[in-house]
Design a protein around this nucleic acid. Sequence first.
DNA 1: TCTGGGGTCCTAGGACCC
DNA 2: TCTGGGGTCCTAGGACCC
Length: 350
Amino acid sequence: MDAFFAAIEERDHPELRGLPLVVGADPAQGKGRGVVSTANYAARRYGIHSALPISMAWRLSEKARQRGEPGAVFLGVNHRRYREVSERIMALVRRHAPLVEEASIDEAYFDLSRAGSFDRAAAICRQLKREIQDQERLTASIGLGPNKLVAKIASDFQKPDGLTIVTPEEAEAFLESLAVRKIPGIGPKAEARLARQGLRTVRDLKKFSPEELQGWFGKWGLELYERLRGRHEAPLQEEYEPKSVGEQETFSTDTLELQFLFDRLLHLCRHVRKRLLAEGFRACRTVVVTVRFADFDTRSRSHTLAAATAALDRLQFFAMKLFMPFLDRRENPRKKRIRLIGVRLEKLEK
DNA sequence: TCTGGGGTCCTAGGACCC
DNA sequence: TCTGGGGTCCTAGGACCC
């Protein structure tokens, strides 16, 4: 889906149409914490994009206002609403494909191999885009390819409202001229590392052997060698079981107030436990507590129990036990304030 | 400009077992 | 005197994705 959260808000608030729109954290007059979740295309023209600090988005919007352009409208995230819309769209997709993998709230893979040809599959994609437009007044971008990797990259190739078709014969050439960053799994760090060696495109990276890539990237290097050539065997996965559930909370101001910190930690335990049970799990064996200090130094401690538990007092006991050392002189000698606390449960049992 | 929240997977060292 | 090899589990951190 194209700029999904922002597109839903724009659709549901006609008075906002055409204005730059930012969905994300509260900007609090430029002093807010948090980031942009989604910006619509008008806001992107100001340089506002996903994951940008909301304070920066605010600044960019103010600058635009000074130039005489409209300032951006900032909205909070209405996750429940987006989930509803997502479910209706996924249902539309399911009418066309026997196998659908919901990759995220606004992204799915679906298997059209039964269509028998790329032409017939492309016709189905056009039909689906029409249905999404007619029934939801939203646009989607679709990539059609011989596997999930190529389809995903193709879906991103022409946005918004795009349809990009890449046949098996075209796949390798299609990838060659792209930036390495377009390959899922190559993130900012790997991109920068490669750029330092003058390697920018898929073509540049294809000069190296599997062993060389393995030397740089470990196990993932072998997988990367295949991906650079458009090869990807991963099957569609209808559903999968979560391996962990967790929650974290960034405070509006960094603090060392013990009563407050304990209170938030215990509350996170309650909430995470509730979600664990709601997901259909009976218990867990590992508790992880994360602390982020004011300087963004982020640490975690974990404890694995001999026997699984879901008893709130046990979870809270271990969470406290894991948390306390962060307050200790040795662990935090400069008395850094705490910015975030997180609790995660792992080794889940059904 | 100052960095959310929900996750997954990989690596590396150490303990421990046979 | 100086110590193999294979394996599993736990812990901590980091890269990456949406």
